[in-house]
Every structure is written in structure tokens, then in C-alpha cells.
Design a protein around this nucleic acid. Structure first.
Length: 295
RNA sequence: GGGAGUGUAGCGAAGUCUGGUUAAACGCGACGGACUGUAACUCCGUUCCUUCGGGUUCGUAGGUUCGAAUCCUACCGCUCCCA
């Protein structure tokens, strides 16, 4: 089984730096598991690794699509599988680094992305009125359409139901599911005492402002803002109101800090309960990896 | 010194006129949780104390009342205006 190293941790916990450090020590390459660093041009607000850092160690799955594009876990898993195979073929160690727990789980677990196809005609017909109907109706349709999918979705969560519905409706004529590789993973988690982490987050936000996030945010706003998938990114959406003159800089900054803190908590919850993480520090990580590789 | 206002749970802020259905709305902060196709999304819960039976609260001390955050009195603190 292919051995890989995975590094997770809340935002601003130091994942990127650790990833580079480990890659240099163990002849590895980085695969980013980050739903927002996927996007080109969103550099500062996503705390993307710099060009200089990327020159040190090859990074995959960063800057792969324009900021107007949609991207899904399925896209990620497919691309990551390819990248890992390529890295291994060249005799190097794949190191997955990312804060998007969902992506990591999908990569490591056996996320069943090949759900049964629905009838295309029914789909086209239903799509319209479904969007306008209420939650109960949508949930009911989902159950009728694909019990398998419905089973996996929180039917009380409006957005989740709508998305699942879209999946059930649009995914027509999928080719047979290709068997995915399975990996043996050492999943390392980086964490800090809560108050320290919050300090790091607050500082990072201030740095983003002085580094010029506003320019990036303006570009994203011009490209579509909130309507885009990338427009949901924490670190960008908070600036839109300010750029449109309906909020001031201080308010926007505070909001961003708050959202980042809340996000960090959500990440931690996900890592703790959805992944099998070995919690460690940047200093101890190398030893763990060393032992793992030789095992 | 005179006048007006104000004091509510970690913070902000309702409730006071028209006492009870108010351990006290709501927001923030903090904390916990869910998560299989947009996941930096979306959603849920806890936040006076408790041995979970209860207990103690709305600046403080009294009073009225069957019953008070809500009415009365005094006092303390803060804000503003006139001196």
C-alpha cells in the first residue's frame, strides 16, 4: 500500500511551513488539500505558499483553476490520486497538507462518489420547481430520487438537501466507478493552546491587510463576488461590504478575525471526530515521520 | 450646588409605563457538536450555581404586595446639562 504523510491543523497553525520542512528532510512533495488555495489569484487571503516556498519544494493542487470556476471534492480526489501516483513513481514521498478536512477524509476514506444515475428527462423537469419549493418537498423528492444519497444527507439542512438534489439530478450516465487506490497514511495534526492560536489568527489577518488582500478581494468582487464558489472564502467575503462602501475597514477586519476563529474551531472538531489524527508539534513531527517511513 | 438620565447574567442590550405566563428576549464573546459531490460551506447545542430535587439573581438596603427586574423610600456609582 502506498504510504503517504498527511498534515492537518486549523488555520494559522503552521501546516505549510511544516510541510515544506518535512518535504525537504524526507525527499517529499506537497499536495495541497485546501478548497481555496485551488484558485488562482487568491494568494494573500488564502495564505497560499509563496513562489519562493514553492521553488523549494514542488507543490501540487495549488493554483489549478481560475477563481470563477467551481471545484468539488470529487475533482480534488481525482487530481490528488494522480498527483500521488506521479510523486510515488518518481520515488518521492507524498505529503498532503491542508485544512480542508472534508477533502482529506475523502482522499483517505472510500468516499462513494459514484452514485446511481437518475433519469435525465426527469432531472430537467424537476430541477426548476425544486429550487423554488420548500425544504420538506425538496427532502421528499431527494428520498424518492435517490434513497442512497438521501441516507447520507441531513434532511433538515436546507443547503445540504439542495446540493444533494443537484447531484442526484445532474449526475447522469456516469461511467462505472474506477477503483481508487487506498493509502496507508500517517495523519499528523498541529494544534496550539486556544489563546495562542487566536493570537496567530489575529496577527495573520493584520498581515494580510498590509500585504494587500484588498486588491485581491476587489478582483474577486469584480469577477462575481459572493456568487462565486471562491467568493465564500473567509478572507475575501468579509471585505466585499467594505469595498462596496457599506462597511468600514475596522468592522470588516474584526469580522474576518471572528470568522477565522470560528472556522478554526470547526476545523478542529472535524479533525478530532472525522479523521484519525496523531496530534503533535512542528518539532516532533520529523521523528514521527521518520519512524513511520521505516516501519 | 441645581437639572436630566442611567445601573440587568463575561460584554452589549431588551424587559420597567400596563407587577405574576421571566432564570430573565436578542446580539457578541466563549465553549461543545454534526458533516459522502460548493465544505474557508451549511447546520445544531451549551453558556448564574447545582449532589439536577432544587438554590440564588436584575447597583445596595429597606418597604408595599399573595406575588417585584418591574411600584415606593433612602443610599451608592456612572453619564450629560446648567452653575
Amino acid at each position: 500500500m502506498t504510504k503517504i504523510v498527511v498534515i492537518v491543523g486549523p488555520t494559522a497553525s503552521g501546516k505549510s511551513a511544516l510541510g515544506i520542512d518535512l518535504a525537504q528532510r524526507f525527499n517529499g512533495e506537497i499536495i495541497s488539500a485546501d478548497s481555496m488555495q485551488i484558485y488562482q489569484q487568491l494568494d494573500i487571503g488564502t495564505a497560499k505558499v509563496s513562489a519562493a516556498e514553492q521553488a523549494l519544494v514542488p507543490h501540487h493542487l495549488v493554483d489549478v483553476v481560475p477563481m470563477t470556476a467551481n471545484y468539488s471534492v470529487a475533482d480534488f480526489v481525482q487530481a490528488a490520486d494522480l498527483a500521488i501516483a506521479d510523486i510515488v513513481a518518481r520515488g518521492k514521498l507524498p505529503i498532503v497538507v491542508g485544512g480542508t478536512g472534508f477533502y482529506v477524509k475523502a482522499l483517505l476514506g472510500d468516499l462513494d462518489l459514484d452514485w446511481p444515475a437518475s433519469d435525465a428527462k426527469i432531472a430537467a423537469q424537476l430541477q426548476q420547481d425544486l429550487a423554488a419549493s420548500d425544504l420538506a418537498t425538496q427532502a421528499q423528492r431527494l428520498v424518492e430520487l435517490s434513497p442512497e444519497i438521501a441516507k447520507r444527507v441531513d434532511l433538515q439542512n436546507p443547503q445540504r438537501v439542495l446540493r444533494a438534489l443537484n447531484v442526484a439530478l445532474q449526475d447522469v450516465d456516469l461511467p462505472p466507478k474506477a477503483p481508487r487506490p487506498t493509502y496507508e497514511a500517517l495523519t499528523l495534526g498541529l494544534d496550539w493552546p486556544r489563546d495562542v492560536l487566536y493570537d496567530r489568527i489575529n496577527q495573520r489577518v493584520d498581515q494580510m491587510v498590509s500585504a494587500g488582500v484588498l486588491t485581491e478581494a476587489q478582483a474577486l468582487l469584480d469577477a462575481g463576488g459572493l456568487a462565486l464558489q471562491a467568493g465564500q472564502a473567509i478572507g475575501y467575503k468579509e471585505w466585499f461590504a467594505y469595498l462596496q462602501g457599506t462597511s468600514d475597514l475596522q468592522t470588516a477586519t474584526d469580522l474576518l478575525k471572528r470568522n477565522s476563529r470560528r472556522y478554526a474551531k470547526r476545523q478542529l472538531t472535524y479533525f478530532k471526530h472525522q479523521l484519525d489524527v496523531t496530534w503533535t508539534t512542528a518539532n516532533d513531527a520529523a521523528n514521527l515521520v521518520d519512524v513511520y517511513i521505516k516501519s
